[in-house]
């Protein structure tokens, strides 16, 4: 079944949309969620993502369907991660990514967070688009998908050390960018 056909099922409010989504995207979304939460929770996060898609389509007819489901899955996994954070610190790749992102803030963490995640996300999108493509892609794989550096190295034919150096440089650039935009 094609993506378009699956979207049509959502539009028709046909429950087969959920089954077909699982068949088309299940493994992909679960792999993403497992970077952030346990395997058991990952399946529930993916189900959450399908139901969020169910609520959003219609009126949405997303052009990047796979990426949209990835975002919904990540959001669901982050919700769960936050809820369990106190008792499940460490272990997941997300935790390592969080620590890396703390470097961007350079000790200037502010629990209040005056800026909305969506606005910040748009700023980060602009930042990534301004990077050389490979550097931007590596950063997205690490910070959105929470891929390990070894996985990124394999994906792009780089050495793991090269990936780490690239990520470190990109974080420094992001810090400068956020400062220049007034977010830090």
């Amino acid at each position: 079944m094609t993506d378009e056909q699956i979207v049509n099922l959502y539009w028709q409010k046909d429950e087969a949309a959920l089954r077909e989504s699982e068949r088309a995207y299940g493994a992909y979304c679960r792999a993403l969620a497992k970077r952030i939460v346990s395997a058991e929770d990952a399946s529930e996060c993916v189900n959450d993502a399908y139901f969020r898609a169910w609520g959003a389509i219609p009126p949405e007819r997303p052009a990047h369907r796979r990426a949209v489901l990835a975002k919904l899955t990540r959001n669901a996994a982050l919700d769960r991660y936050r809820a369990y954070a106190a008792e499940k610190r460490g272990g997941s790749e997300a935790h390592a990514v969080l620590d890396e992102l703390a470097e961007v803030l350079g000790g200037r963490e502010d629990a209040e967070g005056a800026v909305a995640a969506k606005e910040l996300g748009e700023a980060v999108s602009r930042f990534v688009r301004g990077l050389p493509r490979r550097e931007g892609d590596v950063f997205v794989r690490r910070c959105f998908f929470a891929d390990t550096t070894a996985e990124i190295a394999k994906r792009y034919g780089m050495t793991e050390n090269n990936v780490k150096v690239t990520l470190s440089r990109t974080r420094k650039k992001l810090r400068i960018y956020l400062e220049s935009e007034g977010y830090l």
Partner: peptide, 28 residues
């Protein structure tokens, strides 16, 4: 801002950037 917010903000990245990062394998 805190690191959790910054991490969350990646959920709002453009979908085109996410798809772009699905990079080639076996090209070499």
């Amino acid at each position: 801002m805190n690191k959790q917010l910054l991490f969350d903000s990646f959920s709002h990245l453009d979908e085109s950037l996410l798809e772009r990062s699905e990079a080639p394998k076996q090209r070499v």
